Simulated assay, not measured.
Amino acid sequence: MTFNKTVFLPVDPDAAFALITEPERLRRWKTVAARVDLRVGGDYRWTITPGHSAMGSFTEIEPGKRIVYTWGWEGDAGLPPGASTVTVNLEAVDGGTTVQLIHEGLNEQQEASHAEGWNHFLERLVLLAANGDAGPDEWAAVPDPMNELTSAEAALAVAQRVLRGLNESHLALPTPCADFTVAALLDHLFGSIASIGKSLGVTVADQPGGSAEVRIADAAQATLEAFRANGTEGTLDMGFAELPATLVANILNLELVVHAWDFATATGQELTVAPALSDYVLGLARNTISPQMRGKSFAAETLVDESSASMERLVAFTGRQVAGI
């Protein structure tokens, strides 16, 4: 079975090629996280939705014209990485570019599920090319199943939208974290993600001169991929202590979701978090933040009404003051 669909993008072929190959652009319509080695024989790993990562390698590359790559799902015996093939043809037309996507090597059931997925993401690609923003992806909002790693991937999707809205004029602004400017909080967040990556055996490269979104997203991608490979059993050496891997995953969730709120609050951005995700991360916070941590890593819990939204209860539990409360 083969899926075959063509859409029109109001951009030139080079811009269209960038949208379907570059991690920063893939994250805006198709992936939560993306690693790409764009060369023939190079591989990729794309977290399409939390808990679901596509993997394969590139077999043909003609910039601005065509790209062919193998496709499969990490941990899926029915369609493992490399089991099928995706071809994307680009053609310049009046006013823009047509993008033809052909997915071959699927059985009938796989074709039906992939058709649903490709239709969803190609629609988002068209929105991005036309409007500059495809909006938050509802498919990434609530992981299924929900666990420490899928929630961290969903938290990354939340954080990236806020980070994308940061610019140089925001760096000196104060944040809800006492004594932290936006720039200092970005350094802190990167350092936390990098230290977790180090405990998992990966070196996370810093890009302090790049955009906030690219800096944090690339660090989180490498760390989350390593966490997926390592799992949440046993302990991790964090340098200052050996911690249960589940506790470290909890910390990663808190870093991404709570600091996304900090950045959004500091810069006047809207933060979109599904209640199911903030409920879950609030549960992780209650299992992570002990009374002994108050006054050190976390301020004292602030008071909010029990009827408040779970995101408000989460940030209050971490010691932040919720406006209007």
Rank of each mutant, 00 (worst) to 15 (best):
A245K: 04
P275G: 12
F227G: 03
G191P: 04
P244F: 00
K198S: 15
C177G: 00
V281L: 14
T175P: 03
K198D: 10
A184L: 15
A241R: 13
L271C: 02
L247Y: 00
V257P: 04
A264L: 11
I251H: 05
I216G: 07
S211C: 01
H188P: 02
E225L: 15
G201H: 07
E225Y: 09
A217Q: 10
I216W: 00
L282E: 11
A220Q: 02
N253H: 10
T235L: 07
L277V: 05
D218G: 05
S211Y: 00
E213F: 07
G201S: 09
T246D: 00
E225R: 11
V182I: 09
T235M: 03
L256R: 04
A245C: 04
I193S: 07
F227W: 11
L186G: 11
N250W: 09
P176H: 04
L189S: 12
P244T: 00
S278I: 14
L173P: 00
V257F: 02
L254Y: 00
R228Q: 06
T181A: 14
L236Q: 01
P176K: 09
V258M: 08
G201D: 07
V204D: 10
P176W: 06
A264M: 10
G283M: 09
A217M: 11
P208Y: 09
F227P: 00
G239L: 05
V182H: 03
K198M: 06
D237T: 00
A212T: 12
A245P: 01
A266L: 11
S195L: 04
V281Q: 12
T272Y: 01
A184D: 13
T265V: 07
A274S: 15
D179N: 13
L173K: 14
Q221Y: 09
G268V: 09
R215H: 13
A220H: 04
V281C: 13
A229L: 15
S199R: 02
I196S: 08
D279K: 11
L271Y: 05
R215P: 08
V258I: 15
A212F: 08
N230G: 05
V248I: 14
L271I: 15
G239K: 01
G283W: 08
A219P: 11
S211L: 10
H259P: 06
A178G: 02
A260D: 11
A220K: 04
A222I: 13
G197F: 05
D187T: 13
P244R: 02
P208T: 13
E233F: 01
T232P: 01
N253P: 08
A226K: 11
E225T: 14
A184N: 09
V248C: 13
G191R: 08
G234R: 03
A245R: 08
D206S: 15
L243Q: 07
A184V: 04
L224H: 01
D262I: 06
G197E: 14
L186F: 03
G210L: 06
A172N: 12
L252A: 09
G210Q: 07
T235D: 15
T181F: 10
P275E: 14
L185S: 07
